[in-house]
Amino acid sequence: MRWYISVGSVLIAAALAGGDVAGVAAPSSTPQLADTKDSPSLDVELVIAVDVSYSMDLDELAVQREGYAQAVVSKEFLQAMESGPHSKIAVTYFEWSASSDQKIIIPWRVIDGPESADAVANEIMKTPVRRGSRTSISGAINFAMPLFDENPFRGLRRVIDISGDGPNNNGEPVAGPRDAALAKGIVINGLPIMVKEPSYSTMDIDNLDWYYEDCVIGGPGSFVVSIKDRDKFKEAIRAKLILEVAGKTPNHRTVPVAEKEPRVSCLIGEKIWQDRWGR
């Protein structure tokens, strides 16, 4: 069973308090990676996959960048990281749009304290903001999976963190890559951005959080943090990263997912594109 939450300050407080926020779908113990070449030396390998499609306006792109940069240097994030058995993580950050458009902004970096966190934040902010056409969540997942094999560091958990403001409308349908990632023991969490009213011109949909919940995320303890208030954009990013690093699953305002038919068609983005452009 998977879950979604709406962001709020209470979420961050719960994650940091070390209270009972373990996910209902989480295993009883932390899973080890199948790779036995090296013993895990850090707590999580985190791939941050950030949507930069044209449906994201420039202000949203800038706030998104700032949100991730500020999150990794925040006291709350560093405290969550230090609570792990190894007190360090590895992170890589890339931007994506179409199925063939992904750009790594930060190669794999270890964060083990304020100094390394500052270095990662500075790398995020120094790259100019860019935009791309189309939205391929499937392409982002396909691009993310081999990054774990390229990572020289080994963690107890492998997580893909995907943010986006629309459904998949390019490349292969999202279900296949999602299932392939889950088969590799990778957890996928989602950050659906819903700060604008759905628009025909931007191919937005109603209930994007349901789409992410039923079609994108997966794995033990996977979750969605939806952003419905522009003013809470940065807070949402910070809350999500804290939960991922701490290995927690939110227990506030949770709603169980339909176990069978998705509440929103997993092909809705492809259908909208086909209806509009005929291809």
Rank of each mutant, 00 (worst) to 15 (best):
F233N: 02
L33C: 13
I268Q: 01
I186S: 11
G8L: 01
R134C: 13
R2P: 10
P256A: 08
C215D: 02
E235S: 09
P173D: 06
T36W: 01
S199W: 02
I193E: 08
P27G: 13
S29L: 10
V21W: 13
W3S: 11
V255Q: 07
M145E: 11
A181S: 05
I160P: 06
D118P: 00
T249S: 15
L46T: 07
R279G: 10
P146S: 07
S116A: 10
V216M: 02
G269S: 12
M81A: 05
T202D: 07
V44I: 13
A144G: 03
M56S: 09
R279P: 01
S133V: 03
K88R: 15
G269L: 07
D204M: 01
T127R: 11
E261N: 03
S55C: 12
R263A: 08
E244F: 07
V110I: 15
V52N: 09
L78Q: 15
G166N: 03
F143G: 04
V44A: 14
C266G: 12
W277E: 02
P146Q: 03
I105E: 00
Y200R: 02
T30H: 04
A71H: 05
G247D: 03
F153K: 01
E45G: 02
P250L: 09
P128F: 06
V63T: 15
A17T: 08
P256S: 06
Y212C: 07
G166L: 02
R131F: 11
I217D: 06
M1N: 01
F143A: 08
R134I: 00
S138Q: 02
A69R: 08
G23M: 02
R279F: 07
G132S: 03
I137G: 04
T254P: 01
G113C: 06
F148C: 09
V187K: 13
S9P: 03
V47K: 03
R158N: 15
D20T: 04
I12W: 06
S6Y: 14
I186K: 03
A69E: 03
I111Y: 07
A239M: 09
D118Y: 03
A80M: 02
G176H: 08
E213R: 08
D204E: 14
V159W: 01
G132Q: 01
A14H: 14
L241M: 15
R253P: 00
P27N: 00
S28W: 09
G139D: 04
S39L: 12
W273Q: 05
K37Y: 12
D206C: 00
F143S: 12
A98D: 15
G18Q: 11
D35I: 06
V174F: 10
M194V: 08
N122I: 08
S39A: 13
A62R: 14
K232N: 14
P250H: 11
S55P: 09
V245F: 04
W96P: 10
I193A: 10
V187Q: 15
A239W: 12
A69N: 06
I186F: 05
G190S: 09
E45Q: 14
A236N: 03
F143R: 13
V264S: 03
S28A: 09
T254N: 13
A98W: 04
G176N: 10
F153P: 00
I12G: 05
I272R: 11
A49T: 04
I242Y: 12
